[in-house]
Amino acid sequence: MHCVTLTKGVPDFREGQVSFDEDGHLERGDTPTVMNPNDEPALRAALQTKIRNGGTTSVMSMGPPGYGDVLREAMESVYADDLYLLSDREMAAADTWATAITVATGLKRLEPDLVFAGFKTADGETGHTGPQTAWCLDWPLVTHVVALDVDADEGVLRAKRLVEGDVDEIETVEAPLPAFVVADPEFDPSYRKAAHRLKHKDLREETRARAQNHEDHLTVWDHEDLNLDPDFIGLDGSPTIVEGVDPIPRAPAERDATMVDPSDEDAMGDVVEELTQYAGGD
């Protein structure tokens, strides 16, 4: 079984150094980048699938050459065997649709059994890229997945997904492989068998060594490698128009702090009194 997890580098908003060009497009080369935190449920789901079912796991991303650290972090999280980066100038400034076309083309070359994606990115927060990529592949799409199992012999994915309504409900669904999974933040991996827990430990140690030289396991494809028409990818292939952006202010470098000795009962009483006004309830 071959699983691919999609991840993305997003601006590190904590640094307050997000740069845009005059047209409102993000200047990724001038902006600190971290792995999208909302991809973590997808990484956990892919890791569970690998441990339970064996096979190989890959990580794929689209972005500039500087995404190496993002991919290394993802490799360590999902215990990936290899990494794929879709990258060149023709892919730059893509919206979710142009990104989906590019990523789907890369996935077709790998022919995986399962693809995992996060529910949204921390920068765009549209939640479009995963479903749009599944549409491009014409694969079954299962979203808001909180638990899953794979029957490789039958070629079937069985998943539990969260349904938001008046009350939270869990829906159980089946889908034939290959399939596309969007993991919910509530996804909680389960390793009930001792053999799974032991394999988890072995894979962790093996991957740590591999991640130290992650460049040796990285394949970079540009638009020519994927036979993509520049008119349909990147900025030229993006129907989205950015009307405007607002700068994110840098957080204060220094903040006032009052030191309190925990053994000072009067001082601790003042702390409780100060915090009580912000507490909920009575």
Rank of each mutant, 00 (worst) to 15 (best):
D149I: 15
F180I: 07
P262Y: 06
C136F: 14
M35W: 03
T219I: 12
E111M: 08
G16E: 11
E273P: 10
M268I: 14
N213E: 15
A45C: 08
D81K: 04
V4R: 00
G29K: 07
L235Q: 13
N53E: 11
L157R: 02
D21E: 11
D231A: 12
A209P: 00
F119D: 02
E215H: 14
V146S: 02
A267R: 04
G237L: 00
Y84P: 10
E164K: 15
S190E: 13
A98R: 01
H25D: 13
L162D: 12
D166F: 13
L226C: 07
D188N: 15
E171P: 02
L275S: 09
R161A: 01
L148N: 03
V173S: 06
M91G: 04
R44L: 08
L43I: 03
M91Y: 05
P11D: 12
C136A: 14
T5R: 05
A98V: 10
D82M: 01
D270Q: 11
D184C: 11
A94N: 11
P11Q: 13
L83S: 02
V173T: 10
D282N: 15
E76C: 00
D222S: 12
Y67N: 10
E273D: 14
T207V: 00
M60D: 08
P11Y: 08
L226S: 04
G130T: 04
T172S: 04
L218Q: 05
K120N: 06
Y67P: 00
L198V: 14
H214P: 00
E265P: 04
H200D: 07
A251W: 10
P64T: 14
D229F: 00
D88R: 09
K201G: 07
V103Q: 09
V18K: 07
L141Y: 15
G280P: 15
E73R: 01
R250N: 12
L86R: 02
D184Q: 08
D216Q: 07
L235N: 11
G237H: 01
E186R: 09
D12W: 01
S77W: 03
P140Y: 08
E154V: 08
R250C: 11
L157M: 10
G24T: 09
L83E: 01
H200G: 03
F187P: 03
S238M: 15
E76N: 06
E206K: 02
H25K: 09
L228A: 04
T133V: 09
A194L: 15
I241G: 11
H217A: 07
T31R: 03
L86Y: 14
R89T: 10
L203F: 03
V272W: 13
